[in-house]
Design a protein around this nucleic acid. Structure first.
Length: 151
DNA sequence: GCCAACGTTGGC
DNA sequence: GCCAACGTTGGC
């Protein structure tokens, strides 16, 4: 089992939006970055756990824990001309983008980006590196456990 | 709103 | 295959 951190803009899907969804589950669609896609398509397994992270907002940080509840399948938004995630180069025969589904395990207190930066134990986390923009990143078990212990 | 960092595109 | 131009991300 692997651990991940997945960013979401709360104006798109917040932790409370997720909590209010049927089955507290959401399709992680709209990812249009190959590295992030590859993590979902090639590496994510059922039962993997992920920090749910609010980005591009007043208080960026970890706000919950989710689990992968459905393996990657072709992202339907790539085929929809009305979607902002439409990709004219993708076809059902040759899908380009994939998404998993995640289910909320629990909301947590806000562990802000600022707080995360304050722990030397987390200094090598991908999310804390300068210039990091990747919306899905692996989390080391040691880093995962450290954060679980400060929740 | 700014801007550094990074990814993608497309001409050559 | 190179690389300039452009677009996006995301914290501040």
């Amino acid at each position: 089992m692997r651990y991940w951190l997945m960013k979401s803009e709360p104006t798109e899907v917040s932790i409370d939006d997720l909590a209010a969804r049927p089955g507290q589950t959401v399709a992680w669609d709209g990812v249009r970055n190959y590295q992030a896609r590859n993590f979902m398509r090639n590496q994510m397994q059922l039962g993997d756990q992920a920090f749910f992270y609010h980005s591009s907002c007043d208080e960026p940080g970890i706000v919950g824990i989710t689990t992968v509840s459905k393996l990657a399948y072709p992202d339907v938004t790539q085929f929809d001309p009305k979607s902002k995630y439409y990709d004219p180069k993708a076809t059902p025969e040759n899908p380009r983008w994939f998404n998993v589904e995640v289910t909320l395990l629990k909301k947590t207190r806000l562990v802000s980006l600022k707080e995360l930066r304050s722990y030397p134990e987390l200094a090598s986390m991908r999310i804390l590196q300068k210039g990091n923009r990747l919306s899905i990143t692996p989390v080391d078990p040691a880093e995962w456990n450290f954060i679980m212990n400060i929740l």
